[in-house]
């Protein structure tokens, strides 16, 4: 436990495993909160440049301090609780939405052994917690006692469960190929640039696209953002929330998107391993951020799907495609 802890042979930061988990947890959670906050700045800047605008420029150099200004502003805002709301659920939802999205971080491996909790059922845990996000969203929608919020919550649930199926089916492909549920084993099975997004030439690539699309839908990002379609539902489930509670939903959305990118990078893009270029946390971070940036790119390039198109896309096309992919990857394992 000296000043700069060297990563021991066991892969632990410290000699004691609980301390390793605690410190790593604090570092990962705070870093991800920071990245999520600054990604809002990045997205605004990115969108502005795509639309030939300067974007945020006033607060700090290139507007870099904008997230801090926004956060301080939200802290000072009045916390309005409308008279008609279901108070306990209304207060609990913004807390749970952040907890559910941050909880997923526990199983994401950032490097060899650099994982908060090395679970044997890592994939299952990550998928379960990230779909648990729907619960607080629905709680907020119901408890708000507002028609826009209720419609937003119902749409969020309908869309979330519809895209859960293709997500689960796409995630089966790396599990079949790696033969393990542990995220660390899945990364090791892709060692030497044999990424599942590239290697079995057919099913892997399609599964990656399917997984990415379904993750976008789970995170309610454009083109799948009907739960908060601002032109129809004002702000969806967050319509009655003010100040920091609204900020929590906003933060959770970005956190969820960031974590979905990290899971996709782990399952399909080889995680921390970069073949001949070595391995390390930086590769994992880079892959995650590239996927994260692609999500912004998609958001500012595409239009929103209509509710019926959204449902038809999932049930009519993505679900059978997922079933075919599972069979194709299993056949590939037998032949190889």
């Amino acid at each position: 436990m000296n000043g700069a802890p060297p990563v021991a042979a066991s892969g632990l930061l410290f000699n004691s495993a609980p301390l390793h988990a605690l410190v790593l947890g604090l570092v990962v959670v705070s870093l991800c909160m920071g990245v999520a906050a600054w990604s809002i700045w990045y997205e605004r800047k990115f969108a502005a440049r795509m639309q030939n605008r300067p974007g945020p420029t006033e607060v700090g150099p290139w507007g870099l301090l904008q997230p801090i200004a926004d956060g301080l502003k939200m802290l000072q805002k009045e916390d309005i609780v409308p008279a008609a709301v279901d108070r306990p659920l209304f207060e609990l939802a913004p807390l749970l939405v952040v907890v559910a999205s941050l909880g997923t971080l526990a199983v994401i491996p950032w490097g060899d052994g650099l994982v908060i909790a090395d679970l044997h059922i890592g994939v299952l845990f990550a998928l379960a917690l990230s779909s648990l996000m729907l619960l607080p969203v629905w709680m907020a929608g119901w408890a708000s006692n507002n028609k826009y919020a209720l419609l937003g919550g119902m749409r969020a649930i309908a869309q979330g469960v519809s895209y859960e199926i293709p997500l689960l089916l796409a995630a089966t492909v790396p599990i079949v190929l790696a033969g393990s549920f542990r995220l660390g084993d899945i990364v090791e099975a892709q060692a030497g640039l044999r990424w599942f997004a590239l290697w079995p030439p057919g099913p892997g690539a399609v599964a990656f696209v399917l997984f990415f699309m379904a993750s976008l839908a789970e995170a309610n990002r454009i083109p799948f953002d009907i739960p908060e379609a601002e032109s129809e539902l004002v702000a969806g489930v967050t319509v009655e929330y003010t100040g920091m509670k609204f900020g929590m939903f906003y933060l959770a959305e970005y956190l969820h998107t960031l974590i979905a990118s990290a899971i996709a990078a782990t399952l399909f893009l080889g995680g921390w391993d970069m073949g001949p270029l070595g391995a390390g946390v930086h590769w994992m971070v880079l892959k995650t951020l590239v996927l994260f940036a692609v999500i912004f790119w998609i958001r500012w390039s595409w239009l929103r799907l209509r509710a019926d198109q959204l449902m038809a896309l999932s049930w009519r096309w993505l679900v059978p495609l997922g079933l075919v992919l599972v069979m194709a990857s299993a056949t590939w394992v037998v032949l190889a």
Binding site: P18, A21, L22, G25, L26, V28, V29, S30, M33, M74, L75, Q76, K77, E78, D79, P94, L95, V98, V99, L102, G103, L105, A106, V107, I116, A117, D118, L119, H120, F125, G243, M244, K245, G247, M248
Partner: peptide, 27 residues
């Protein structure tokens, strides 16, 4: 192995409580 998961969730609870708590204090 589930103890670290509990740690992560605890950290998340503390973070979100602090943020909402601060806005109670300042707002």
């Amino acid at each position: 192995p589930y103890v670290p998961v509990a740690f992560a969730i605890l950290i998340a609870i503390v973070f979100s409580l602090v943020f909402v708590g601060l806005s109670y204090y300042f707002g």
